[in-house]
Design a protein around this nucleic acid. Structure first.
Lengths: 233, 233
DNA sequence: GCAAAAGTGTTGTGTCTACACCCATGT
DNA sequence: ACATGGGTGTAGACACAACACTTTTGC
């Protein structure tokens, strides 16, 4: 093992992984929370996660822990957020935690165990540890990336109408979004492709909506260098 | 201590911190590298850093390790980049590493120990561990933030002319930048304030340059919501 | 006067928001 | 016909890059 300043003192800190799993449900951005059974914070809501095991990466670890809560294949996106290290963040002993952001398309409804529930991000209960700022950091990351990447793909079903997509953006961004302009921005940036098919009208009539899908369902930066971009030549 | 899956197997992984310390020197973006004395990778260049100690945060830790290399008070900005966890990233044993991005204003010239040197980021030698991608990630972070934050303050002296600032942006971005438009963008966004003073002309003449400073010398997002911004009302 | 360096005026382009208007369907 | 929801046309605001031009200095 590497030289270890802990050798004569205590063991190195244990390392936890947690995930901010977000999904737009009922038109509201919600986060998957888990009711803790054990101390510390027994009975409190917290982010799902667990301890890092030997020989797995952080990403593998969070996937393993999430597998106990949801079907991991339903995760459309997963990225690292930040690592928290306040010495007293866990009252039972030193513990680092690396947080991830996970997204689930709005058309899926994973079966959940009894101790796990969706909560609107706008009405978070008191969370264990430092999980509240982590959830808010996850939401901020999502909001920012909606502006300059194609990350919308991770919130949306394979096929959707523009007004459905508008609902997802509105829920994630926390403000109204015009369907007209959303369509134009995403088409201009070549993120969306029409499937050619249409959705039939509802019972109250109305023009049938065209269906679209994201051209690429993996993260791409679509608005690099908004300003100070390289010279044309 | 928290429940520990390592208890019956091995100790938890040791945790290292490293920093990508960047400065524009001689018009070129350079990174502070340290020549390793010990295995693994003895003799190779690597990022400065070291082991996390008990009772310090990651940020405190990287400051402590950097203090052995440079005067930490010269760091104008420090932020967390990412945590690396590939099990074999250290051949001597499992080790996680959290990387930071640090910036130093171009007018400072910290005294360095013998084993430490600046290297142009464009001509990196072979680096130990996974440090090459970490350096490139640091440069990308800086480049992106130059576009939508005031992070230029961390590369620049307290007072500077627009052409000096242009040199810093050009070195960091890797492409030419027009002084004319740089001035306009940063003034429009209200990042710069004229100090009212001027720099005297050089020996070959030329109009004396006005001096500017950053209005705020702490990170601020200045171009939030480039698109999909909230409705005007 | 001339060169050098800094700074301003101006034009054109592209992207975005807002809003009016048109289209397709059900009752 | 008319209500409902979807989609297009268009105009105005704004930010930006490019480049010509002017200003201020040293020689």
């Amino acid at each position: 093992m590497v030289y270890d300043p802990w050798a004569k003192t205590a063991a190195p800190p244990s390392h936890a992984v947690v995930a901010v799993v977000l999904q737009v449900r009922d038109g509201v951005l919600q986060v998957l929370l888990w009711e803790r059974a054990l101390e510390p914070f027994a009975g409190n809501w917290s982010l799902p996660g667990g301890a890092l095991a030997p020989d797995e990466t952080l990403a593998q670890s969070i996937r393993r822990h999430l597998a106990a809560k949801v079907d991991v294949r339903e995760l459309s996106h997963l990225e690292q957020l930040e690592t928290r290290s306040e010495p007293d963040r866990n009252p039972l002993g030193r513990e680092l935690a690396t947080a991830f952001l996970g997204l689930i398309p709005s058309d899926l409804d994973p079966a959940l165990p009894d101790d796990t529930r969706w909560h609107p991000v706008d009405e978070l209960p008191e969370l264990a540890f430092d999980h509240t700022p982590i959830v808010l950091a996850g939401r901020e990351r999502l909001r920012a990336k909606l502006s300059y990447t194609n990350i919308g793909f991770a919130l949306a079903p394979e096929e959707f109408t523009i007004s459905q997509l508008r609902g997802l953006y509105r829920a994630a961004l926390g403000h109204d979004v015009s369907a007209t302009n959303l369509q134009r921005v995403l088409l201009r940036r070549n993120l969306l492709v029409p499937t050619g098919t249409q959705r039939e009208s509802g019972p109250s009539g109305g023009r049938p909506a065209a269906l679209f899908g994201f051209r690429v369902r993996a993260l791409e930066i679509t608005d690099q260098f908004a300003v100070l971009r390289p010279p044309a030549a």
